[in-house]
């Protein structure tokens, strides 16, 4: 499995990280080194193995479905790069 420049560009896009065109070949090279290392996993026969989902089998705790928190608008917005009129402000999303 070899990653080409287009695939590297597609992955960067999916991850929402801007990568300049000039940097794509080096990035593809690094992906290939890491994926080459990961490739060893294909040696094992895992057909009858259940994927591990939790470290220790534990039933998730339940609690009544009720509101336990809230009314903290100012604190929620305190770290926002741009907060206005009680909202997070972002560039226009819908034309």
């Amino acid at each position: 499995m070899s990653i080409d420049i287009e695939t590297a560009a597609r992955v960067a896009k999916l991850a929402r990280i801007k990568v300049e065109d000039d940097d794509l070949p080096a990035l593809a090279g690094e992906f290939n080194a890491i994926l080459g290392f990961i490739e060893q996993l294909q040696e094992l026969d895992v057909d009858d193995v259940e994927p591990m989902t939790s470290v220790t089998p534990m039933r998730l705790k339940r609690r009544p479905d009720e509101v336990t928190d809230g009314h903290q608008q100012a604190r929620v917005l305190a770290n926002a790069p741009d907060a206005r009129e009680g909202f997070f402000a972002v560039p226009k999303v819908v034309e």
Binding site: L35, L41, V46, V49, P51, M52
Partner: peptide, 21 residues
């Protein structure tokens, strides 16, 4: 992002979880 992307999830992520088991 790559190992979770469509078409690779089983080959990488699910296989790694099985190896983890």
């Amino acid at each position: 992002t790559y190992v979770l992307s469509a078409g690779f999830y089983d080959a990488y992520y699910n296989r790694a979880r099985k190896v983890r088991a």
